[in-house]
Computed example of a mutant assay.
Amino acid sequence: MQLQIVRLLTWKIANHGKRFITTSNRKEKTFRKLYQEFWSPKSIHNPPYEHFTQIGDPVLRTKAAEVPGDLINSKEVEHIVEKMIKVLRKFDCVGVAAPQIGISLRIIVMEFREGLIDILPKPVYEARKMSTLPLTVVINPTLTVTNYEKHKHPEGCMSVRGYSAEVERFHSVMLKGKNLSGVENKVELSGWNARIAQHEMDHLDGKLYIDRMDSSTFICTCWETVNAKSGRVEIPFYK
């Protein structure tokens, strides 16, 4: 039922730029194969996904539509946000935009949990000006730069799985938007948290970090393991 409700929401905003893709395979099938398919349950995968969409999916290159005001505190939007939070934590990420789970709406979720501090060495953590950030949901966000000083650090994206590059981002920003209750909020962010916000805002405009990267720094994040394992390495898209 929830997925059906979400499809209704998508239909409502179709005129705001949502893209739909259908594919078909018209190969001839034997009667036996058709009979098996008739009785076998079919797996249906529709957004909002529980995985990250990958570069090449048109949803990542489409400017997301604003969530209509009367739907901001609806069960449909709440369901989408719940999926975003689930995916964010499932993959141990710090930010996710709705297009990354297949929904072309202007919603972002950010969170830098205390436990993520232990993943990186302390000098890296300090150099990148990382700090904890409580779970933050922003609907129809707007971003204003408050400190134009730029910093260049490695940046990755779960929608360009397995790669990273150095990207320049502004030091501080102001993020404004509504929460799930429809209340207008504003958040001041600096350092790495400001980078997260800028990265996720790009997603809402159909942009990826590779559009802003220093291309000479673009790397496969597991290149050393590829060599050590004689190429027998797989990049997972599911956890």
Rank of each mutant, 00 (worst) to 15 (best):
E50K: 12
W39L: 13
I44G: 08
E50N: 14
P48I: 08
S43N: 14
P48Y: 05
Y35K: 13
A64V: 10
I55V: 10
N46W: 06
S40V: 04
R61Q: 13
H79L: 12
N73F: 01
E50C: 06
I72E: 08
N46C: 10
S74H: 05
F38H: 08
G69L: 13
L60A: 11
A65S: 15
N73K: 10
K63H: 12
S43R: 14
E76Q: 13
T53L: 11
Y35A: 14
G56R: 06
G56D: 07
G69M: 10
G69P: 03
I55S: 10
V81T: 04
Y35S: 15
H45F: 06
P41K: 14
P47S: 13
E50R: 12
G69A: 11
V81D: 03
E78I: 00
H51Y: 11
D57E: 12
H79K: 09
G69S: 13
P68S: 03
T62Y: 05
R61L: 12
E76L: 05
Q36V: 02
I55P: 00
D57R: 06
K42S: 13
P48E: 07
P48S: 06
H51C: 03
G69D: 15
P58H: 05
K63W: 03
E37G: 15
M84Q: 10
F38L: 13
K75L: 12
F52P: 00
P48K: 07
N73Y: 02
Q54P: 00
E37Q: 15
K75E: 14
H79G: 01
L71A: 02
D57H: 12
A65K: 03
V77R: 01
D70R: 04
L60K: 08
E50W: 01
P47K: 09
D70F: 04
L71H: 01
D57T: 07
W39K: 12
T62P: 11
K83H: 12
H51V: 07
S40E: 15
V59I: 12
P41G: 06
R61T: 13
F38G: 01
M84W: 02
K42D: 11
T53G: 01
N46A: 14
H79D: 08
F38R: 12
E76K: 07
P68R: 02
I55W: 01
E66D: 15
P48H: 07
M84T: 04
L60E: 09
V81H: 01
Q36C: 12
E50S: 13
M84Y: 01
A64W: 03
L71E: 06
I44L: 14
V77S: 02
P41T: 13
N73E: 09
E82W: 00
I55T: 08
D70L: 02
L71P: 01
A65V: 07
S74L: 04
L60F: 09
K75F: 11
A65E: 09
Y49P: 03
H79V: 10
P68Y: 02
V67A: 08
D57K: 07
E37A: 12
V77G: 00
H79F: 14
P48Q: 07
Q54N: 05
E37T: 03
K75D: 09
K83T: 08
